[in-house]
Design a protein around this nucleic acid. Structure first.
Lengths: 140, 140
DNA sequence: CTGTGTGCAAACTCTTTGCATAAGT
DNA sequence: ACTTATGCAAAGAGTTTGCACACAG
């Protein structure tokens, strides 16, 4: 066998209560076909147009937010003007290249966080984001 | 004794090569007088105006960026539309309240990160940000 | 005085919204 | 058919920029 059968985008969309329209399916394919990715709205839009799916920017915004609500992707905490969406919803972390505003997955590592503080009353932890900010090494 | 003598804003500005103008000193006072804070440009601007220092928004933007370059404050990695500036430049971490876009310091805790991955070639780690995203506890 | 800094308003970028048209079930 | 999604263009929010005036040294 060649691997696990991925659940089709159509099915995933339906379980999320979203109609599997051409645009949503195409965006879902782009997002999930190539492994884990972090994209901005503009990047995904451009990919879609290049791939022959002339979806509008507004629809990409809508769709990414819907996918986020459905828990299929999530928003990354980076200090950039643009919003980054991550197709990997599990606990893992990121490098963020200053200046270039580029997001990289932290490769296989056993980074661990210990002694997480308790959340304040009435709150629960939704997610823990570790962003390792990188800059070009300066040899002065 | 009542504590350490803080270095005056004037001196700090001069060492950073910044003229201690009325606006910069006032903003610096607001930023550093009350312990560690995280503020948006708008919040600081409003504080300044309320405090009787009618500085312009553009100047607050300029000043916060200059302070950041001087290493006096830093920008936080949160997934908010607004930029948050933190007066605490040391390694410490944050709660981020979803929806409210509120940033809270993580109180005294011995949160530690182990097995930090090595940065990619030619890059060095500028800062490690841990953002613990909070949401209201739901008891369903 | 001379060079910086400041304020204002306009410009820019990213994101959201309203509404007519198109597509899914 | 009926409902929901899409596209477009305009509006919003946050941030940056250009230039005349003001202030610090």
């Amino acid at each position: 066998m060649t691997g696990e059968t991925p659940i089709s985008i159509e099915v995933r969309l339906r379980s999320a209560g979203l109609r599997p329209t051409r645009q949503r399916v195409a965006l879902g394919d782009l997002l999930f076909a190539k492994g884990d990715r972090h994209l901005t709205v503009e990047e995904l839009h451009e990919e879609a147009v290049t791939a022959g799916v002339p979806v509008s920017l507004a629809t990409v915004y809508n769709t990414l937010h819907q996918f986020t609500e459905a828990g299929m992707i999530r928003v990354l905490a980076v200090e950039s003007a643009k919003t980054y969406f991550d197709t990997n919803v599990s606990d893992h972390h990121h490098f963020f290249v200053e200046g270039e505003n580029e997001v990289l997955d932290i490769p296989i590592s056993n980074l661990t966080i210990d002694n997480l503080p308790p959340p304040p009353e009435g709150m629960e932890i939704a997610h823990v984001d570790v962003v390792i900010r990188l800059r070009p090494k300066q040899q002065d």
